[in-house]
Amino acid sequence: MSTVSARGRTRLGWNLLGLLVFAAAGFPVYWMLNTAIKPAKDAIDPDPSLLPTGFTFANFRRALHIADFWGPVGRSLTVSLAVVAIGVVVGMLAALAISRFAFRGRKVVIVGILAVQMVPLVAMIIPVFLLLNDLDQYDKLSGLIITYLTFILPFTVWTLRGFIVNIPKELEEAAMVDGCSRAGAFVRVVFPLLAPGMVATSVYGFIQAWNEYLYALMLLSQKNQTATVWLGNFTTKHGTEYAPMMAGATLLAVPIVALFLLVQRKMAAGLTAGAVKG
Protein backbone atom coordinates (compact mmCIF):
# COMPACT_ATOMS: atom_id res chain seq x y z
CA MET A 1 0.00 0.00 0.00
CA SER A 2 2.83 2.36 0.90
CA THR A 3 4.57 1.50 -2.39
CA VAL A 4 1.44 2.41 -4.39
CA SER A 5 1.10 5.64 -2.42
CA ALA A 6 4.73 6.52 -3.05
CA ARG A 7 4.32 5.88 -6.76
CA GLY A 8 1.21 8.07 -6.79
CA ARG A 9 3.06 10.93 -5.10
CA THR A 10 5.98 10.53 -7.50
CA ARG A 11 3.68 10.61 -10.50
CA LEU A 12 1.87 13.65 -9.10
CA GLY A 13 5.20 15.41 -8.61
CA TRP A 14 6.28 14.71 -12.20
CA ASN A 15 2.89 15.86 -13.48
CA LEU A 16 3.17 19.12 -11.57
CA LEU A 17 6.69 19.62 -12.88
CA GLY A 18 5.45 18.99 -16.42
CA LEU A 19 2.67 21.55 -15.98
CA LEU A 20 5.18 24.07 -14.64
CA VAL A 21 7.47 23.58 -17.63
CA PHE A 22 4.49 23.85 -19.99
CA ALA A 23 3.35 27.09 -18.34
CA ALA A 24 6.84 28.58 -18.49
CA ALA A 25 7.25 27.63 -22.16
CA GLY A 26 3.74 28.62 -23.21
CA PHE A 27 3.48 31.96 -21.39
CA PRO A 28 5.46 33.95 -24.02
CA VAL A 29 3.16 32.59 -26.73
CA TYR A 30 0.10 33.50 -24.70
CA TRP A 31 1.45 36.98 -24.04
CA MET A 32 2.16 37.47 -27.74
CA LEU A 33 -1.42 36.53 -28.64
CA ASN A 34 -2.83 38.59 -25.77
CA THR A 35 -0.91 41.67 -26.86
CA ALA A 36 -1.82 41.14 -30.52
CA ILE A 37 -5.57 41.29 -29.90
CA LYS A 38 -5.72 44.00 -27.23
CA PRO A 39 -6.05 47.73 -28.03
CA ALA A 40 -2.72 49.39 -28.77
CA LYS A 41 -3.01 51.73 -25.77
CA ASP A 42 -3.36 48.76 -23.41
CA ALA A 43 -0.17 47.19 -24.78
CA ILE A 44 1.89 50.07 -23.35
CA ASP A 45 0.03 50.23 -20.05
CA PRO A 46 2.65 50.35 -17.22
CA ASP A 47 0.38 48.07 -15.20
CA PRO A 48 -0.53 45.36 -17.75
CA SER A 49 -3.28 42.82 -17.16
CA LEU A 50 -2.62 39.11 -17.51
CA LEU A 51 -6.10 38.66 -18.96
CA PRO A 52 -7.27 40.15 -22.28
CA THR A 53 -8.63 43.66 -21.82
CA GLY A 54 -10.31 43.85 -25.21
CA PHE A 55 -10.47 42.31 -28.66
CA THR A 56 -9.55 44.05 -31.89
CA PHE A 57 -8.17 43.23 -35.35
CA ALA A 58 -6.77 46.75 -35.74
CA ASN A 59 -3.29 45.57 -34.81
CA PHE A 60 -3.30 42.99 -37.60
CA ARG A 61 -4.46 45.58 -40.12
CA ARG A 62 -1.71 47.92 -38.94
CA ALA A 63 0.85 45.12 -39.24
CA LEU A 64 -0.16 44.38 -42.81
CA HIS A 65 0.00 48.03 -43.87
CA ILE A 66 2.99 49.40 -41.94
CA ALA A 67 5.32 48.14 -44.71
CA ASP A 68 5.43 45.58 -47.46
CA PHE A 69 4.33 42.36 -45.71
CA TRP A 70 3.95 39.81 -48.48
CA GLY A 71 7.32 40.63 -50.06
CA PRO A 72 9.38 39.67 -46.97
CA VAL A 73 7.13 36.67 -46.31
CA GLY A 74 7.59 35.46 -49.88
CA ARG A 75 11.35 35.87 -49.65
CA SER A 76 11.45 34.00 -46.35
CA LEU A 77 9.41 31.16 -47.84
CA THR A 78 11.69 31.03 -50.88
CA VAL A 79 14.83 30.90 -48.74
CA SER A 80 13.40 28.39 -46.25
CA LEU A 81 12.04 25.99 -48.88
CA ALA A 82 15.25 26.17 -50.91
CA VAL A 83 17.35 25.46 -47.82
CA VAL A 84 15.14 22.50 -46.89
CA ALA A 85 15.13 21.02 -50.40
CA ILE A 86 18.87 21.36 -50.99
CA GLY A 87 19.80 20.49 -47.42
CA VAL A 88 17.78 17.28 -47.34
CA VAL A 89 19.09 16.03 -50.70
CA VAL A 90 22.74 16.86 -50.03
CA GLY A 91 22.51 15.79 -46.39
CA MET A 92 20.93 12.47 -47.30
CA LEU A 93 23.62 11.66 -49.87
CA ALA A 94 26.39 12.71 -47.48
CA ALA A 95 24.88 10.68 -44.63
CA LEU A 96 24.59 7.67 -46.95
CA ALA A 97 28.25 7.95 -47.94
CA ILE A 98 29.41 8.24 -44.33
CA SER A 99 27.20 5.37 -43.15
CA ARG A 100 27.59 2.84 -45.95
CA PHE A 101 31.07 3.36 -47.40
CA ALA A 102 34.46 2.99 -45.73
CA PHE A 103 36.90 5.60 -47.03
CA ARG A 104 40.05 7.27 -45.79
CA GLY A 105 39.30 10.19 -43.51
CA ARG A 106 35.79 9.01 -42.64
CA LYS A 107 36.24 9.59 -38.91
CA VAL A 108 37.76 13.00 -39.57
CA VAL A 109 34.65 13.96 -41.54
CA ILE A 110 32.37 12.82 -38.72
CA VAL A 111 34.36 14.76 -36.11
CA GLY A 112 34.41 17.78 -38.42
CA ILE A 113 30.63 17.71 -38.71
CA LEU A 114 30.35 17.85 -34.93
CA ALA A 115 33.01 20.56 -34.63
CA VAL A 116 31.24 22.83 -37.12
CA GLN A 117 28.10 22.81 -34.98
CA MET A 118 30.09 24.06 -31.98
CA VAL A 119 31.26 27.27 -33.68
CA PRO A 120 29.18 30.28 -32.56
CA LEU A 121 27.30 31.79 -35.49
CA VAL A 122 28.12 35.32 -34.33
CA ALA A 123 31.84 34.60 -34.70
CA MET A 124 31.45 33.92 -38.42
CA ILE A 125 29.55 37.06 -39.47
CA ILE A 126 32.58 38.97 -40.76
CA PRO A 127 34.18 36.02 -42.65
CA VAL A 128 30.81 35.12 -44.21
CA PHE A 129 30.20 38.75 -45.23
CA LEU A 130 33.65 39.06 -46.85
CA LEU A 131 33.27 35.72 -48.63
CA LEU A 132 29.84 36.51 -50.04
CA ASN A 133 31.01 39.96 -51.08
CA ASP A 134 33.93 38.41 -53.01
CA LEU A 135 31.54 35.95 -54.68
CA ASP A 136 29.12 38.75 -55.61
CA GLN A 137 26.43 37.15 -53.43
CA TYR A 138 25.92 39.98 -50.97
CA ASP A 139 22.32 41.27 -50.82
CA LYS A 140 21.10 38.25 -52.78
CA LEU A 141 18.77 35.48 -51.63
CA SER A 142 21.12 32.90 -53.14
CA GLY A 143 23.89 34.12 -50.84
CA LEU A 144 21.61 33.83 -47.83
CA ILE A 145 20.59 30.31 -48.90
CA ILE A 146 24.23 29.26 -49.15
CA THR A 147 24.91 30.72 -45.71
CA TYR A 148 21.98 28.93 -44.10
CA LEU A 149 23.02 25.64 -45.71
CA THR A 150 26.39 25.81 -43.98
CA PHE A 151 24.57 25.96 -40.62
CA ILE A 152 21.87 23.38 -41.30
CA LEU A 153 23.76 20.73 -43.29
CA PRO A 154 25.91 19.45 -40.36
CA PHE A 155 22.81 18.74 -38.27
CA THR A 156 21.03 17.18 -41.24
CA VAL A 157 23.96 14.91 -42.09
CA TRP A 158 24.48 13.84 -38.50
CA THR A 159 20.79 13.14 -37.90
CA LEU A 160 20.18 11.22 -41.13
CA ARG A 161 23.35 9.23 -40.55
CA GLY A 162 21.80 7.90 -37.34
CA PHE A 163 18.72 6.74 -39.25
CA ILE A 164 20.70 5.09 -42.03
CA VAL A 165 22.95 3.26 -39.57
CA ASN A 166 19.87 1.73 -37.95
CA ILE A 167 18.64 0.35 -41.30
CA PRO A 168 20.21 -3.11 -41.75
CA LYS A 169 22.48 -3.48 -44.76
CA GLU A 170 20.94 -6.89 -45.36
CA LEU A 171 17.79 -5.23 -46.69
CA GLU A 172 19.75 -3.53 -49.45
CA GLU A 173 21.73 -6.67 -50.17
CA ALA A 174 18.54 -8.70 -50.47
CA ALA A 175 17.13 -6.16 -52.94
CA MET A 176 20.34 -6.28 -54.96
CA VAL A 177 20.19 -10.08 -55.05
CA ASP A 178 16.66 -9.76 -56.46
CA GLY A 179 18.01 -7.66 -59.32
CA CYS A 180 18.08 -4.08 -58.04
CA SER A 181 21.08 -1.89 -58.58
CA ARG A 182 22.64 -0.17 -55.57
CA ALA A 183 20.76 3.01 -56.43
CA GLY A 184 17.54 1.05 -56.97
CA ALA A 185 17.93 -0.71 -53.63
CA PHE A 186 18.37 2.64 -51.91
CA VAL A 187 15.31 4.18 -53.60
CA ARG A 188 13.04 1.17 -53.03
CA VAL A 189 14.22 0.02 -49.60
CA VAL A 190 16.19 2.64 -47.66
CA PHE A 191 14.48 5.82 -48.85
CA PRO A 192 10.96 4.87 -47.60
CA LEU A 193 12.39 3.96 -44.20
CA LEU A 194 14.12 7.35 -44.02
CA ALA A 195 10.87 9.31 -44.41
CA PRO A 196 10.34 10.04 -40.66
CA GLY A 197 13.94 11.20 -40.27
CA MET A 198 13.75 13.36 -43.36
CA VAL A 199 10.56 14.99 -42.11
CA ALA A 200 12.11 15.74 -38.72
CA THR A 201 15.26 17.26 -40.24
CA SER A 202 13.21 19.19 -42.81
CA VAL A 203 11.08 20.80 -40.11
CA TYR A 204 14.21 21.70 -38.16
CA GLY A 205 15.80 23.25 -41.24
CA PHE A 206 12.65 25.18 -42.13
CA ILE A 207 12.29 26.59 -38.61
CA GLN A 208 15.95 27.62 -38.47
CA ALA A 209 15.84 29.34 -41.87
CA TRP A 210 12.45 30.97 -41.21
CA ASN A 211 13.33 32.36 -37.78
CA GLU A 212 16.95 33.41 -38.43
CA TYR A 213 17.45 37.13 -37.92
CA LEU A 214 21.08 38.15 -37.51
CA TYR A 215 22.48 36.99 -40.86
CA ALA A 216 19.36 38.13 -42.73
CA LEU A 217 19.88 41.58 -41.21
CA MET A 218 23.57 41.74 -42.03
CA LEU A 219 23.56 40.18 -45.51
CA LEU A 220 20.45 41.75 -47.08
CA SER A 221 19.43 45.35 -47.69
CA GLN A 222 16.04 46.69 -46.68
CA LYS A 223 14.54 46.10 -50.14
CA ASN A 224 15.39 42.39 -49.87
CA GLN A 225 14.64 41.94 -46.16
CA THR A 226 13.08 38.74 -44.89
CA ALA A 227 10.10 38.37 -42.59
CA THR A 228 12.02 38.42 -39.30
CA VAL A 229 13.85 41.61 -40.27
CA TRP A 230 10.53 43.09 -41.39
CA LEU A 231 9.41 43.08 -37.74
CA GLY A 232 11.98 45.82 -37.10
CA ASN A 233 9.74 48.28 -38.98
CA PHE A 234 7.61 48.60 -35.85
CA THR A 235 10.49 50.29 -34.02
CA THR A 236 10.99 53.89 -35.06
CA LYS A 237 12.44 57.06 -33.57
CA HIS A 238 9.03 57.69 -32.01
CA GLY A 239 9.05 54.39 -30.12
CA THR A 240 7.93 50.82 -30.60
CA GLU A 241 4.42 49.79 -31.58
CA TYR A 242 4.20 46.69 -29.42
CA ALA A 243 0.66 45.59 -30.25
CA PRO A 244 1.13 45.63 -34.07
CA MET A 245 4.55 44.04 -33.61
CA MET A 246 2.99 41.14 -31.70
CA ALA A 247 0.29 40.89 -34.37
CA GLY A 248 3.02 40.65 -37.01
CA ALA A 249 4.86 38.03 -34.97
CA THR A 250 1.62 36.05 -34.72
CA LEU A 251 1.21 36.15 -38.50
CA LEU A 252 4.80 34.95 -38.96
CA ALA A 253 4.20 32.06 -36.58
CA VAL A 254 1.28 30.74 -38.65
CA PRO A 255 3.41 28.93 -41.30
CA ILE A 256 5.44 27.16 -38.60
CA VAL A 257 2.32 26.03 -36.74
CA ALA A 258 0.65 24.90 -39.98
CA LEU A 259 3.75 22.95 -41.01
CA PHE A 260 3.97 21.27 -37.62
CA LEU A 261 0.29 20.28 -37.68
CA LEU A 262 0.73 18.76 -41.14
CA VAL A 263 3.75 16.62 -40.28
CA GLN A 264 3.42 16.11 -36.53
CA ARG A 265 2.91 12.34 -36.81
CA LYS A 266 5.88 11.84 -39.10
CA MET A 267 7.96 14.19 -36.98
CA ALA A 268 7.14 12.32 -33.77
CA ALA A 269 8.07 9.06 -35.45
CA GLY A 270 11.29 10.62 -36.71
CA LEU A 271 12.32 11.88 -33.32
CA THR A 272 11.72 8.52 -31.64
CA ALA A 273 12.85 6.18 -34.43
CA GLY A 274 16.03 4.32 -33.75
CA ALA A 275 15.57 4.38 -29.98
CA VAL A 276 15.08 0.61 -30.11
CA LYS A 277 17.05 -1.25 -32.72
CA GLY A 278 15.21 -4.24 -34.09
Score class of each variant (00 low, 15 high):
Thr159Ile: 12
Met246Ala: 14
Arg7Asn: 07
Ile110Ser: 04
Gly71Trp: 03
Leu50Ile: 10
Ala6Asp: 13
Met176Lys: 11
Val90Ala: 15
Ala273Cys: 07
Ile146Gly: 03
Ile37Met: 10
Ala174Pro: 01
Val79Lys: 01
Arg7Ile: 08
Ala227Ser: 08
Leu17Met: 12
Leu135Asp: 04
Val108Gly: 13
Asp42Glu: 15
Leu121Arg: 11
Pro39Met: 14
Pro28Phe: 11
Thr236Trp: 12
Thr236Pro: 02
Phe186Cys: 03
Glu241Pro: 00
Asn34Leu: 14
Gly71Val: 05
Gly112Val: 04
Asp42Phe: 10
Leu194Gly: 00
Ala175Asn: 04
Phe234Thr: 00
Leu93Ile: 12
Leu81Ile: 14
Leu219Ser: 01
Phe27Glu: 03
Gly105Met: 11
Pro196Asp: 08
Ala275Ser: 14
Glu241Asn: 04
Val157Gln: 01
Gly18Gln: 12
Gly91Pro: 02
Pro127Ile: 05
Ile113Met: 15
Met1Phe: 11
Leu141Arg: 05
Pro52Gln: 07
Gly179Leu: 12
Thr272Asn: 08
Pro48Thr: 04
Thr3Gly: 04
Ala25Asp: 03
Lys277Thr: 07
Arg188Ala: 11
Leu132Pro: 00
Thr3Asn: 08
Met176Pro: 00
Trp70Leu: 15
Phe155Val: 06
Leu153Met: 11
Leu33Val: 13
Asn133Gln: 14
Gly232Arg: 11
Arg9Glu: 07
Pro28Asn: 05
Trp70Lys: 02
Trp31Thr: 02
Ala253Ser: 15
Pro52His: 06
Gly278Trp: 09
Gly232Asn: 15
Glu212Lys: 04
Asp178His: 06
Cys180Ser: 13
Arg11Ala: 15
Pro127Gly: 10
Leu81Cys: 10
Pro255Leu: 06
Arg9Pro: 00
Leu149Phe: 11
Pro127Glu: 08
Ser142Trp: 14
Phe129Gly: 01
Phe191Tyr: 13
Lys38Tyr: 01
Lys277Ile: 05
Ile86Tyr: 03
Thr201Pro: 01
Val90Gln: 06
Arg265Thr: 07
Ile167Arg: 04
Val203Gln: 01
Tyr213Ile: 07
Met32Ala: 07
Pro72Met: 13
Tyr242Ile: 13
Val128Pro: 00
Glu172Thr: 01
Asp178Ala: 10
Phe129Ser: 00
Lys41Cys: 02
Gly8Ile: 10
Met92Leu: 15
Leu135Gln: 10
Gly54Met: 10
Gly162Trp: 09
Ala115Ser: 14
Ala243Met: 09
Ala63Trp: 05
Arg265Ile: 05
Gly26Asp: 02
Arg106Met: 04
Val29Trp: 13
Ala183Met: 15
Thr159Gln: 13
Met245Gly: 00
Lys237Phe: 13
Thr156Cys: 10
Gly13Ala: 15
Lys223Trp: 08
Val276Lys: 08
Ala43Ser: 13
Leu261Ile: 14
Pro168Trp: 12
Gly274Ile: 06
Gly184Gln: 08
Gly91Cys: 07
Val177Ser: 09
Ala200Ile: 03
Lys277Asn: 06
Leu114Cys: 07
Gly205Met: 14
His238Trp: 14
Ser49Asp: 10
Leu217Ala: 09
Leu194Tyr: 04
Gly54Ala: 09
